[in-house]
Amino acid sequence: MFDAITNYFSNLTPEHYFFFLFAIVAIASALEVVMQRSPLYSAVALIFTMAALAANFVLLKAQFLAAIQIIVYAGAIIVLFVFVIMLLNVRAEESRLDRFTALRWIAAPSAIVLFAGAFAAIRFSNLDTLAPSPTAAAAGTTERIAEVMFTKYLLPFEAASVLIMMAIVGALVLAARAKEYDAELSGIENQEVPPKPEPEAQPEEVEVS
């Protein structure tokens, strides 16, 4: 038993140390994301998770993605979250969780089942025997990614750009029309609905909230 442990540790390479270091950071900060009551702290904790995962990407020789992970996720997306949190000036989450306690009895087991299932799948598979690919380093270069992206996967790439475009428009519409909806809602509450010219052509009231 003890021998096995010493054996295990004596076989460790620097890669192992780094992996465990960053894995612990990632798991700890991920837990922190969930356990913090203030969304602002959650967001900051998420940055640490991202950074730890980026380090894991480097271990997996995906250097380009590691950089993108930091720039896009930590640099852009999380900043966006922080902006919104500050914009809305959200108070710390209340601690009461009593309203739907019944759900906890569904959620916790299903989460455990989920993890257990994944764990079992990993264990039962013979992934352990998978040897690292010798071309791993070449696969992660910017050049290689660009080549694949702009030849074989050009269509998904373009589709993704369209998606971004739609997201921009959608976000604009959602954020900008909120005020109009306010006015509309208060107007409907305060005054009578004007007579419709055609009874069968009544527009359906669509609400986002």
Partner: peptide, 15 residues
């Protein structure tokens, strides 16, 4: 992606 030496996986991450 890294263990199979295939860039496709990394591209998925991109998407």
């Amino acid at each position: 992606a890294s263990y199979f030496g295939d860039t496709t996986g990394q591209l998925f991450v991109f998407i």
